Amino acid sequence: MATDHRQRRDRPADRRHLPSARPGRPPAHCSRTSGWSAPSSSTPRQLSGGMRQRVSLLRTVVQGRPVMLLDEPFGALDAITRDELQQWLLEMWRRHGWTILLITHDIREAVLLSDVVHVFSPRPARILASVHVDRDIDRGADFGLDPRVPPLEAQLHAELTKGMAGA
Rank of each mutant, 00 (worst) to 15 (best):
G166I: 13
A110E: 04
L77I: 11
L160T: 06
M92H: 08
L112M: 11
I100D: 02
R15P: 08
G24M: 01
R94V: 07
R54Y: 00
A154M: 08
T161Q: 09
I80V: 12
E84M: 06
R108D: 14
R22V: 05
P150W: 01
A2G: 10
V116R: 14
L47P: 12
I80A: 15
P27D: 10
L18Y: 00
W98C: 02
A76N: 13
L18F: 00
R52A: 14
S34I: 06
F120A: 00
H29K: 11
R148L: 12
F143R: 11
V117W: 07
L85R: 07
H157Q: 14
R32Y: 07
Q7A: 15
R59Q: 06
M164E: 13
R123S: 09
I137T: 08
R22D: 08
R139L: 10
L152S: 00
H17T: 10
A129I: 12
R65E: 03
D83S: 13
T81C: 01
A125G: 15
S31E: 14
Q63M: 12
A79N: 04
P66M: 10
V61P: 03
H96E: 14
D83K: 07
V119A: 10
I137K: 09
Q155C: 13
P26Y: 05
R139P: 01
T104N: 12
A141C: 13
Q7G: 01
H118N: 12
C30K: 07
H105C: 00
D10R: 15
G50F: 04
